[in-house]
Design a protein around this nucleic acid. Structure first.
Length: 151
DNA sequence: GCCAACGTTGGC
DNA sequence: GCCAACGTTGGC
């Protein structure tokens, strides 16, 4: 069982959207490191912290889980999509994704400032300077601790 | 809106 | 294969 943090801009796709949809295709990831996590490491049932970026304040908004095996991101083949990638082919797809399912909303959100201030969360990638990766691994200890904080 | 940090692209 | 230029992310 692995643990991750997924970033999303709530104006684009929020935890409430996921709650409404119950499950969603995590499309549009165009970063190789983030893709590699989905393609190589994720299994159904892996747990996810759902993070709201570009929001005041940025915060962890709830929990989700991996709900599918990895498969090719269909938007890479769609000429009308902003995620279209002309260099990718169905025979040799460049971008893979997983489905994500809603688990629960935080009873109490955990802000980035709180994450950074908590000595127990020392070393978490989210708090590291210049950390832009939209999918990051989280240690089991950190995940479980955050789970208790957000209720 | 600014800008630091980073990733990608493409000329050489 | 180097690296300058450019684009993006995302906190502040």
């Amino acid at each position: 069982m692995n643990h991750y943090l997924f970033k999303s801009e709530p104006s684009d796709y929020s935890i409430d959207d996921l709650k409404k949809d119950k499950q969603a295709m995590w499309d549009g990831i165009r970063n190789y490191q983030a893709r590699n996590f989905m393609r190589d490491d994720m299994r159904v049932g892996d747990q996810i912290l759902f993070y709201h970026s570009n929001h005041k304040p940025p915060h962890i908004a709830g929990l989700a889980k991996v709900a599918s095996e990895p498969y090719p991101d269909p938007t890479q083949f769609d000429k009308n999509s902003k995620y279209y990638d002309p260099k990718s082919t169905p025979e040799n797809p460049r971008w893979m994704l997983v489905d994500v399912a809603f688990v629960k909303k935080a009873k109490r959100i955990l802000t980035l400032a709180e994450v950074k201030a908590d000595p127990i969360l020392e070393g978490i990638k989210l708090a590291q300077k210049g950390q832009r990766l939209s999918i990051q691994p989280v240690s089991e200890a950190h995940f479980e601790y955050i789970e208790t904080l957000i209720g």
